[in-house]
């Protein structure tokens, strides 16, 4: 799974900590998601979608390995 969370975060000028606080997770969780080390649940993906005001497909996409 690939993601563009870092880009979306930069567009909104949010730090990892800011984003973490907005969706109620730790900064390490955001860091792990951005680095593709952790795949978030649907609930977390939808919370990110609300913050970015975009559909989940726009910042999460399947990679060839998936």
């Amino acid at each position: 799974m690939q993601n563009k969370i870092k880009i979306e975060r930069a567009i909104l000028d949010l730090t990892q900590d800011d984003l973490a606080k907005k969706i109620g997770v730790s900064r390490q969780t955001i860091n792990s998601i951005e680095a593709n080390r952790y795949v978030p649940s649907t609930v977390l993906a939808l919370k990110l979608s609300e913050v970015f005001n975009k559909s989940v497909n726009e910042f999460f996409s399947l990679s060839e390995e998936d």
Binding site: A20, G24, V25, S26, Q28, T29, S32, Y38, P40, S41, V43, L44
Partner: peptide, 11 residues
């Protein structure tokens, strides 16, 4: 619990 408990810490 950790100070911030979320789905990743649970996993």
């Amino acid at each position: 619990k950790d100070k911030i408990e979320d789905e990743m810490t649970y996993s």
